[in-house]
Structure formats: C-alpha cells, structure tokens
C-alpha cells in the first residue's frame, strides 16, 4: 500500500533473512572446523597425529576433503527410488538452519524473536529421523533398511526422556522462550540451571548424543555390522550433506544445552556471545571425545538404557520439579 505498512513487515523479515543467511554460513564453517577437530581428536586418541600434510598441522585438510566430496560423482543405486533417495539428504539438512534461528547466541544476537523457541527446535529436530527412514528405504539395500529400522526405534525412544528433561527446566522457569530461559540464570556456574537440575542435564546430554546418532549410540550407521547403515549407498555430496547435518545437529544440541543449563551468554566478568560459544564448543568437543573413547553399545543395551533407566528417571525428575515449583511458588 504505502511505505509505512511495508516498514511494519520489513524489519522482522530483514532480520530473519540476514539471520538465516549468516546461520547457513556459520553451519558450513562449523562443518569444516568440526571435521578437522574430529579427525585430530581421533588421531590423538589413537596415538597418531591425525591429518598433518595439507597445510600446517593439516589445517587445510578439511578444504581438501570438501573439494573431494564436491568433485565426486553422484550415483543412484540400481532399482532404487530416485526421488526418495535424493529427498533424504535434503530433508536432513533443510530444517537445520530453521532450528538455529531461535538460538540466543547473545543478548541481541538471535534470528527470530519467539516465545516458542524451545518447541521450534524440538519440532524441527524430528525431520532427521524421517530423513534417515527415507534414506534407508530409498537405497534399495538391506543394510540401509536395517539402519533405518534402528534409527526409528532409537529416535522414538530417546525423544521421550529428552522432552521430559527439557520440560523440567521449562517448568522451573515458566517459559519456552530460549532467551528468557537463558536470561533467568546468573553469571557464575553455581547460578546456572545445571546446579539446580543436574539429573535433567545428564539425561538431556545422553539423549541428545543418541538423538544426533553419535557414537557410542550410532547404531544407524554401525560400520562394523551394517557397512555404513543408511549412508551405505550415498556418494560424494550426498554423504557430505548428511555429515554436515550431523555436525550442525551436534551444534544445535550444544546450543540448547548451553541456553537451558549453562547460563547461555551469561558468564563471569564479561557476559556476551563469546561465553555462549565457549560453552557450546566445550560440549561439542566432549561429544567428539566420547565418540573416540567408548565402544558402540549393543542395540538391546541401547533400548534397555532408555526404557529402564532414562525414562523413569526423567519422569521422577519432572514430578519432583513440579512439586518443588508448586511448593515454592
């Protein structure tokens, strides 16, 4: 109509557009960085230097890897459903930037102002399972299908204690807004939610590692028994996009843990985005260390751990939190 009505729409939209673009860059840069960190950690854990030849201390190895992935031929397996096969990596990656827009990296550093940030991230995280299902089904390969079957039962199981542990914190703070949740905590570690809700943090962390299909819970891939599970038939960038999505999901998980349990961008002396990033990268490094330290669990152990331990513990924790909130309020 006129300039004023355009201005009413524009600022939020502009923020969203710029935020999404920046976040895609952030995700891609982090994919490279984490690939390097992972290979270095893997190397040192196994008493070898890791990548060392490309650039000083192998710093440019990730670029070489990316070039190799992009340059490879994309093959569709014979007899596979091409549409489902190629929809899967897209579906694994596309929701990822959307999950990032609600994360408060700093006091004013966020993509979208919403009072439902937590629900937004949890709901878009569900696409990952569907992508793994389509990948497993579309590949026309029995290992892929077995991987998909595992992915489904694992993701459906671990989603429940994850939601319950997150709910306990949301209940305590009375909000689903990640900015508000992060802002309600103090600067020092004993003022963070992890000091009040250590059990919820532990449950969340274990479930998050399982939900992102990271070792020791990477049963959907399990290269020793299923070659590469759902990723078996993907070549070049098909595989690369799955990896990018996996690393991005690790960062989302780390960001949510930071905002919910570790005080977000609050920190001693100088609160700011640097504290947020420091805590997030600490958690992500911990996840990478876990992968190279622990052996993969068996599938029955994985499900037993969830249904017999994490789920009842999460329920008890939620009930206790509700009771405490009611008595205190």
């Amino acid at each position: 109509m006129n300039g004023s009505s355009l201005a009413a729409v524009a600022p939020e939209l502009l923020r969203l557009g710029v935020g999404l673009l920046a976040l895609v860059g952030f995700i891609a840069a982090n994919g490279m960085l984490l690939l390097y960190v992972e290979r270095k950690v893997a190397g040192h854990v196994q008493r070898r230097p890791g990548p060392f030849e490309v650039g000083p201390h192998g710093l440019l190895q990730a670029f070489a890897d990316a070039g190799k992935l992009v340059g490879k031929q994309l093959a569709t397996p014979a007899g596979a459903d091409g549409l489902l096969f190629w929809a899967a990596p897209l579906m694994a990656f596309m929701p990822v930037p959307l999950m990032f827009i609600a994360i408060p990296f700093g006091e004013n550093l966020f993509g979208l102002q919403t009072n439902l940030g937590l629900v937004l991230i949890l709901s878009f995280a569900g696409f990952n399972v569907l992508a793994l299902c389509l990948a497993g089904w579309g590949s026309n390969n029995k290992w892929s299908l077995l991987g998909a079957a595992r992915a489904v039962s694992q993701a459906v199981a671990y989603e429940i204690p994850l939601l319950l542990s997150v709910l306990a914190v949301a209940l305590m703070c009375g909000s689903l807004d990640l900015r508000q949740l992060a802002g309600s905590q103090g600067g020092w570690p004993w003022q963070w939610n992890v000091a009040v809700q250590p059990l919820a943090f532990f449950i969340y962390f274990v479930c998050a590692v399982a939900e992102t299909n990271r070792a020791p819970f990477d049963l959907a891939e399990a290269e020793s028994e299923l070659t590469a599970g759902v990723h078996t038939e993907y070549s070049g960038m098909g595989n690369g996009i799955f990896f990018l999505a996996e690393y991005a999901n690790m960062i989302v998980v780390g960001c949510v843990a930071t905002a919910l349990f570790l005080g977000g961008s609050q920190g001693p002396f100088a609160p700011g985005p640097w504290w947020f990033l420091a805590k997030m990268y600490l958690l992500v490094t911990l996840v990478i260390f876990m992968r190279w330290t622990y052996p993969r669990v068996r599938f029955d152990q994985l499900l037993n751990l969830n249904w017999r331990w994490l789920m009842p513990l999460a329920l008890v924790n939620l009930l206790a939190t509700a009771l405490a909130v009611k008595l205190a309020g």
Partner: peptide, 27 residues
C-alpha cells in the same frame, strides 16, 4: 509446531515403521 512435532516427528515415523513391517519392496 505441535502439528510438526507430533505428526511429522512421531505419527509419520510410526506409519513408516508399519510399512517396513508389511515387507513391501523398495522398487
């Protein structure tokens, strides 16, 4: 968001599980 969380995240995945049990072939 609840529609996405419940239907896409859970119901569709459960239907997928049911399809896998029918032993339909991929092609």
């Amino acid at each position: 968001l609840m529609q996405i969380l419940i239907y896409v995240g859970a119901v569709v995945v459960l239907i997928f599980f049911a399809i896998m049990l029918t032993r339909a072939q991929a092609e």
